[in-house]
Design a protein around this nucleic acid. Structure first.
Length: 467
RNA sequence: GGUGAGGUGGCAGAGCGGCUAUGCGUUCGCCUGCAGAGCGAAUCUAUAGGGGUUCGAAUCCCUUCCUCACCUCCA
């Protein structure tokens, strides 16, 4: 498959070897995760699901930054340990992302558990002359890495004139960034240079090199990490190993809220907890995959509401398929179904294989839903046709990480009993009685669909925004 | 100011030299005891403006205008 690489600014072939290594920059655990984090993580989760569906073994590593000024500040404010803060938000992370049907990564390494690796990396850099010790810490000497700026396409002299870099007289160059910061307070660790904490960028270099080695296939994250985070990671890692760090840099666009940047200061962040409660996992995932991953997407109520309608069609389709009954298949319908499945699978796979075009892939999927619903509407959706469509339908749902709410066998037979009673009453023209049963069924979260010959039903996911 | 990404029908969003997706919306139908869901038909030939290149451009080139992101911690 092909993926756009930020570094070379071209689509690069990911020559699908037996296994693909992915390092995804995760979150700093100082607050609840939000929809922006969710988009990046859902994109990579879906990518992983797609690759796996193609028979590729994926090794996915996603870190937690659990040592950072924001965490420490929060710990001070609440008068608890930094560890308490980070573990609280790691728990929050898993609660949210498990609910979003995100498959667990192979490993979630934490910065605090890799201090030794970071120290040895820094030692290596100091030894090779890429880093130096100043009064405040150990710094990476940007001027020593001649390719600095290659990812973010920045020129070193322009960066300097940018003048928005932190003022620190102990640095040799304003652009130099901290690998290790001296600090007497907690949390801190002893190092060959003094007590302190690692800088942010070094953790990802240390952990990705440890678990994936150098020149791994994909390094990913949000677009906002391109500079300085990923730029600095490249500088450190390539200076240390002398080898290429990652083959492809894949960056996910930002989520805006009603066209505005989402930020704490504007107070418009949408937490994962919030969007889950309001829209549920399927709508959120569909929303996050609705545009090309590299472009920004805008969170707006109207768009999300539109997504609910699409999701209802999928639910409807699913229940039409599983509740189809025996009967002779119309030859023509069977042909239509077969061709639709073949067509859709091709489009779906090609779209995802071509720079992971989830927008195109989902529209292909919706075409199959439409076809199935058309056959159902003409009363021709019999078991043998459903059997043609269902495997492809379920497979694509799974790649997209979507999941229709199912019904237990007990509920199923109860529903069928109620439907039979209702249909009896309808024949007797006792519509009051029939409507009362419909109400009873509806209270179970089930919607009835009256066809000419029979009545089927579907379980609709409860969506907060539906009220 | 620098760097990058973009500007496509009422909206969302693909296409990246010829066949102009797809979905939502809107209108009218079908179905139904009613309702919901679904289905059908219609609507919508849109590609920021101006120049080129080409037999042919939303797609390539030039130019103008505009938007967004990043350049500080940030997914």
């Amino acid at each position: 498959m092909k993926i756009f690489d930020t570094l070379s600014v071209t689509e690069k072939e990911l020559d699908a070897p037996a296994s693909i290594r992915i390092y995804l920059c995760g979150v700093t655990v100082y607050d609840d995760s939000h929809i922006g984090h969710a988009r990046t993580i859902i994109v990579f989760d879906t990518l992983r699901r797609f690759l796996e569906s193609q028979g590729v073994r994926v090794k996915l590593i996603q870190n937690f930054t659990d040592v950072d000024d924001k965490i420490i500040n929060r710990a001070r404010t609440e008068n608890v340990s930094a560890d308490k803060i980070s573990s609280r938000y790691i728990a929050n992370y898993f609660e949210g992302f498990d609910s979003l049907n995100v498959k667990r990564a192979d490993l979630y390494p934490k910065a605090t558990e890799h201090i030794a690796e970071m120290i040895s990396l820094i030692q290596g850099l100091v030894g090779k002359g890429f880093a130096y010790v100043s009064a405040n810490g150990v710094y990476f000497a940007v001027s020593k890495f001649t390719e600095y700026g290659k990812l973010s396409k920045k020129k070193i002299d322009e960066l300097i004139s940018g003048a928005r870099v932190e003022v620190d007289d102990t640095k040799k160059d304003p652009l130099d960034f901290a690998l290790w910061k001296f600090a007497e307070d907690e949390p801190g660790w002893d190092s060959p240079w003094g007590h302190g904490r690692p800088g942010w960028h070094i953790e990802c270099s240390a952990m990705s090199l440890k678990y994936l080695g150098s020149d791994f296939e994909i390094h990913g994250g949000g677009r906002d990490l391109i500079f300085p985070h990923h730029e600095n990671e490249i500088a450190q890692s390539e200076s240390y190993t002398g080898k290429n760090f990652a083959k492809i840099w894949m960056h996910v666009g930002m989520v805006t809220i009603n066209g505005e940047k989402m930020s704490k200061s504007l107070g418009n962040t949408k937490s994962v907890d919030f969007v889950l409660k309001k829209w549920g996992p399927n709508i959120v995932r569909l929303f996050c995959l609705s545009g090309h991953y590299s472009k920004p997407i805008d969170y707006s109520e109207d768009l999300l509401k539109e997504t609910i309608i699409k999701w209802r069609q999928v639910e409807n389709c699913y229940y039409e398929l599983i509740l189809s009954d025996d009967g002779a298949a119309d030859i023509n319908d069977e042909k239509i179904a077969r061709e639709a499945v073949k067509e859709t699978e091709k489009e779906f796979t090609e779209a995802l294989g071509s720079d992971f075009n989830t927008s195109l892939a989902t529209s292909a999927f919706f075409k199959l839903v439409k076809t199935a619903n058309q056959i159902a509407a003409s009363e021709h959706l019999v078991r043998s046709i459903a059997d043609i469509v269902l495997p492809a339908f379920e497979q694509m749902l799974d790649v997209l990480g979507l999941s229709v709410v199912r019904v237990s066998p007990e509920e199923k037979s109860k529903i069928n009993d109620l439907i039979n009673r209702r249909n009896m009453l309808r024949i007797q023209k006792d519509f009051h009685g029939a409507d009362a049963i419909r109400k009873e069924i509806s209270d179970m979260g089930i919607v009835l669909i009256d066809h000419k010959r029979r009545t089927i039903w579907m379980r609709q996911e409860k969506i907060g925004a539906d009220g």
